[in-house]
Design a protein around this nucleic acid. Sequence first.
DNA 1: ACCCACATGTAATGTGTTACATGATTTT
DNA 2: AAAATCATGTAACACATTACATGTGGGT
Lengths: 182, 182
Amino acid sequence: MALAHAILACLMDSDCTGYDLAKQFNGSVSLFWQATHQQIYQELSNLETLCWVDSQTIPQAGRPDKKLYHITELGRKQLIEWVKKPCKPPSTKDELLLKIRLGTLVERQVILEELERHRQIHLKKLSVYQDLKHQRFQNPQALPLKAQLRYLALLRGIGYETEWLAWCTQAVQVLGAEAATN
Amino acid sequence: MALAHAILACLMDSDCTGYDLAKQFNGSVSLFWQATHQQIYQELSNLETLCWVDSQTIPQAGRPDKKLYHITELGRKQLIEWVKKPCKPPSTKDELLLKIRLGTLVERQVILEELERHRQIHLKKLSVYQDLKHQRFQNPQALPLKAQLRYLALLRGIGYETEWLAWCTQAVQVLGAEAATN
DNA sequence: ACCCACATGTAATGTGTTACATGATTTT
DNA sequence: AAAATCATGTAACACATTACATGTGGGT
């Protein structure tokens, strides 16, 4: 039920529509959670059934009515209980590593190109995170605790992408060296 | 359909029963893929319907018959086509980071203990990986390509866990420092 | 006596992805 | 004129988790 809790976490900051939430899950929240609008709308209606959130409908001219969601006292309590519970480290399923393992089935060039493509993707993400760091966390120690906690998520993103980059570089070296000798 | 391809990758090495595969997915394959025996048995019967694998039933005394799966020529071709296709970097959903973000809702001690617990988990995994490295990859450059590709997966695991550890340590410092001043 | 390894599966439920569906307003 | 933003949803399908279900043989 963690998507539900990720949504509640956003609603702790401010009331949101499904649309607003979808944007957040494509932005800052995507550092540790991803969800599409379909999932979000679905989950919001579940949460409303549970009375963990309530909503007010705001009529609009020329577009669909807006539904603004608000976390309830019950929702807040449930969220706090959830935070206290221990959790498992995330499990990842990595197609690229599987393809690398099968590298002997295709021409080396295919694998090298895919590695380079992934290296670029991680490079780009890292640069986005680095920019964020410089823009909003110049002097992190001076920030209030809440901001420092968000800074930790950003540091995790930076570390994760940095490690990926280093690995891609190393993998290209290993495969490149083999290409020269074999 | 990537679980299917992960299974086919295992079957490229040797014929396996569902039980054998489940063990591999708990062991070396878990570096980049996880699956339970229920999922594996299900997927094997799908793959057999598609004729990407075939099986021979081996009767046994005093225990259930064994079904030994073997990749077909069609399965092999499909696997090669799949390796050639580009893929997306993995997306992770990280409950711990979400809980950290909500750190102001509970006592600091709760978060610090959970961080320490995760640090221990990552430390343990890292030590398993380091042991594997010392046991099987003493002189990686001397190994054949296939073994070097597996070595790359191990290096990725080591890098991943190392980065996690560093982050946990940093997070404890940030929260610990705050505890002293606030 | 109890637990672990062997060996297979079904069923229910929960979660996530992709495709479909609509339609005005604002920006390029 | 085209594309992006705003704003909501349904439906089908794919994938994952948890619980249930069975039963032998070997080690502590």
